[in-house]
Design a protein around this nucleic acid. Sequence first.
DNA 1: TTGAAAGCGCTAACAT
DNA 2: ATGTTAGCGCTTTCAA
Lengths: 333, 333
Amino acid sequence: MKKQTITIYDVARESGVSMATVSRVVNGNDNVKPETKEKVLAVIENLNYHPNAVARGLASKKTTTIGVIIPSVTNLFFSALALGIDDIASMYDYNIILTNSDGNEEKELKVLETLRSKQVDGIIYMGNKITEDFRSMLNNMRTPMVLAGSIDHENKIPSVNIDYKQAVFTQTCELINNGNKKISFISGSLDWPINKNYRLAGYKQALKKFGIEYDESLVISTKQDYKSGYLLSSKIKNSNISAAVVSDDELAAGVLNGVVDSGMRVPEDFEVATSNDTMITEFTRPTMSTISQPLYDMGAVSMRLLTKLMNDDVVDDNNVLLNFSLKKRNSTK
Amino acid sequence: MKKQTITIYDVARESGVSMATVSRVVNGNDNVKPETKEKVLAVIENLNYHPNAVARGLASKKTTTIGVIIPSVTNLFFSALALGIDDIASMYDYNIILTNSDGNEEKELKVLETLRSKQVDGIIYMGNKITEDFRSMLNNMRTPMVLAGSIDHENKIPSVNIDYKQAVFTQTCELINNGNKKISFISGSLDWPINKNYRLAGYKQALKKFGIEYDESLVISTKQDYKSGYLLSSKIKNSNISAAVVSDDELAAGVLNGVVDSGMRVPEDFEVATSNDTMITEFTRPTMSTISQPLYDMGAVSMRLLTKLMNDDVVDDNNVLLNFSLKKRNSTK
DNA sequence: TTGAAAGCGCTAACAT
DNA sequence: ATGTTAGCGCTTTCAA
């Protein structure tokens, strides 16, 4: 016995109506007499009919699927955004094709091609840098995209972020107010616009405000993970740095634990302020002071924005900035 | 100007061959004369043709998409698996539709229906409990599924796990060997087979081996998150419990920090052993001793298994158990 | 090695 | 309120 697929045609035949009517019932179109509707519904139940979204996608040119590009699902910053994205997506009856890019530009390009072939209705991009190849491919495909927690240095693609520059500026000011003269700026690659053009810029601005000279040797750019942060401790210990602004929580946890394990007291000898308010900030001892930002909401808002873009709704603000605040915990004075 | 889609038909016309030949070229079928192939490839390039995977899916009844059900992407245990899944999936040219179930059984059911309609070629399930409704719907749809880091109490669905019972058994034995008499078992819901039938069973077995009487009051079942763990400290402090086996790292971090913040010393006054070897175990102070398991590999292997199932390959072992070990850190003696 | 043609299961005019 | 019909863009026999 071959597996026999029940189609809309079978339902139509069995209920003595046309395919169009069945389609209307399935899609909740009101133009169906209640009795007809009931009859069709009964047949659907009997025949155990299940709509085929692929066929629907081909016919309607809408897949109700969106693509989500993420550096890694294991990154708590991005996964928090992804959760917000998925929640709103399912609220609007979209599904998500999720692909890890590993921050690899070639892979991002390949993923984008796949998303195009799968005819996604829209894309949410999380990542560190929009390359020119990526941008031109995107322009070529006419699929709406929004950036979530991610920066396009040309600021052309719709996005949802916080004001990273202002946030780091404020944070650095606090550290200066706490009496620190030598504050290190520790981040992932400075090749990423978010680090170079926003965070570092905020850091510099704060120094300037207080008339502190910018010292490039205090800027540390490294791989953005726990271990890299941890390994910074000897460098820090052998310097006169008394505080650090760190661009990522995992990295900051590494710095914190490394510094503590090397015998320094935090925050007495060394203060660390981090960026993302993920749960990591609560796990460490001392807990970490951080920029507080609505991660889930950033994802949710970006997905909401994408639904508007997909509907060609009017959008008043293509580059949304959500509010942030500073959350004082125990790694700063 | 309307957006004009370039189809395989256009390519065929322009290159003076049939659609079938273009299809062969696009799909890397060898039965094409090299010259023909080149010609077609050139036209594809010129016309900027991009295959439509939706149409392909409808015609071939294969979508090269699999569904992944996950409690939450923000859970480090599951997201580590998800990363392994995605890597292997993309290696085999599959994409992933990722949906968060929030551990909600109704939502899981709804998701399953969506995955059916989207015609996924296979499904990977991560979660706490397979309900009967879920199982019957799955049986009804004939789509292969494998469980990753998740238990089917009937053990009918292919799966990839470690031997949780043996792991907790060993772990508990160590704690007993360290001199503990009153060891608490702390986990999420005991309604989940993985907790009740495996972890708790391993715990009991260890007690039995050492002739320690099982005391139900030492079994704590709670919401599986940091805060719930943290709030357990007063209960623990006002007892004579000297150690705990915890079923989740976030939960364990809560227990650890709560206990420490309430003035107890870890591991001197209280030992805690956790389950998943996520990065959280490195973040806390003291770091946490844990069952060590190959999270990424569990995801990877489950995806690999799924590819075999989708191909109707022979599978020698439907219920894979990967090796675990015990990793001693500083939260135990 | 290549082509012709019949679907895949559905939607969306358009007509009634 | 309902039916007819022409696709959507591709794969896949089958034949040549």
